[in-house]
Design a protein around this nucleic acid. Structure first.
Lengths: 243, 243
DNA sequence: CAGTGGTCTAGACCACCGG
DNA sequence: CGGTGGTCTAGACCACTGA
């Protein structure tokens, strides 16, 4: 390891970046073990304690997971759904589960002002719009529109996404080597727009309030990747977050 | 430090608990420095590295904060509002700020089934109900009802809360030595009930959707302390969370 | 059993802060 | 300048896993 690096970034930070790059380059697959801490220490000419610290932080970032006696492994990327669970309103203890996803469509759109700003693109640039329907206990519960740059993710289409399964983020990781993490989430309460209401099976004429989420996801290097809007029905189940 | 403790809990965990107890007992005030890592190490007969690890985790839990060259200090308890910010819808970059709080009333209520379960009490037990109005840029933006056990927090009243200022959590810490952290939050979209609508200045006859939050807060030892419900207007500002 | 991560120690040097 | 936290090293022992 180069010790004369202007002494700016600590060693363990440099090792974090290095490992992150190698993970994203696909050097180790999901659930595959990295070399042991001692082997990494020798390879990178640092002490095992320094390797340990880098790995510990990557575990905290949920990029890796450890199992005592077995090794250190590459973690799955986050789920499209996010960390939230669906639970009975008022019952704070028992968290439910995450819903199941179905890809409805993959079309093209143009970046709005907000999308362009959030994604670091110019207004009007072409984006993929991936529409997903979430079901919980068989019932439609949420509708997502995910927007991603066409340029960065050339050739993304419904066939790929359905074939891979596991949602948009899993596909980004496996096909484009991009790991993603949620940077920011906005919550609002809105009346469900007509189109979304019909897709969510809300056919009554009365207007129904829905939880509206806006979410910005970035790559591990902090580069904005996805702008996602979600309408979530919360009459039966609440959207539960546990910090 | 007792090394023959059945070897169950690691030393740094024991030290975390010990320091947490001493912080809650008021041994050091908010923004007051703890003894240096070396002094603590000597006092507790462990190595500085072990003290360091315990402190690092308490910093991650936002119980302490560190300043290089100065020391390690007791942090403020969390704000009643929580970690969220109010921001312009669609603008993910620029987070706004938190709103200002005003205590409306302090009354008594009886625990509902959900409250009792969440707080570990029996149904119908007496609770304080603290009603707070949040204003942002002068406009009412959210209404909170915080419920706490009357038994555990004897003598809580509006005078104390107003006199202390800084909200419920600051008062719990200063008067009862209880530090609090948010354990779980539920989000729902609802139509704003009539009473809450009038307190939030929504006098139109049409029904307005509001973001409904249910939040359970616990002490540092994990004991449930507060059940809080919030109605938040989101027509103008979104509720922004940054993980 | 060998190999892995998990804890703990001791000591060194650096970077920053304040008087 | 002394005192603080921040980084890095080397080595020891433990606890768990799997062959």
């Amino acid at each position: 390891m180069n010790r004369n690096q202007l002494r700016r970034r600590p060693l363990y930070e440099q090792i974090k970046s290095l490992l992150l790059r190698r993970i994203n380059d696909g050097e180790w697959q999901v659930d595959e073990a990295l070399p042991s801490e001692w082997d990494l220490a020798e390879e990178l000419s640092v002490s095992q304690g320094t390797i340990r610290r880098a790995l510990t932080e990557l575990v905290q970032d949920e990029v890796l997971y450890r199992q005592q006696g077995r090794g250190t492994f590459v973690a799955e990327s986050v789920s499209d759904w996010g960390d939230a669970l669906l639970g009975a309103p008022g019952a704070m203890g028992a968290g439910g589960a995450a819903p199941l996803v179905e890809l409805l469509s993959c079309s093209r759109a143009n970046a709005s002002v907000e999308m362009a700003e959030a994604l670091g693109l110019r207004r009007g640039e072409p984006l993929w719009r991936l529409r997903q329907l979430w079901r919980y206990q068989g019932q439609p519960i949420a509708l997502d529109d995910a927007y991603l740059s066409c340029e960065k993710f050339e050739g993304l289409d419904a066939r790929w996404l359905r074939q891979f399964g596991g949602g948009v983020y899993a596909t980004l990781q496996r096909r484009y080597g991009v790991r993603v993490m949620v940077k920011s989430v906005q919550f609002r309460a809105e009346l469900l727009p007509r189109e979304e209401a019909s897709l969510l099976g809300q056919v009554t004429s009365i207007e129904v309030p829905a939880l509206s989420l806006l979410r910005l996801s970035v790559s591990m290097t902090g580069e904005p990747v996805e702008w996602r809007q979600r309408y979530c029905l919360t009459q039966q189940f609440a959207y539960v977050v546990t910090p």
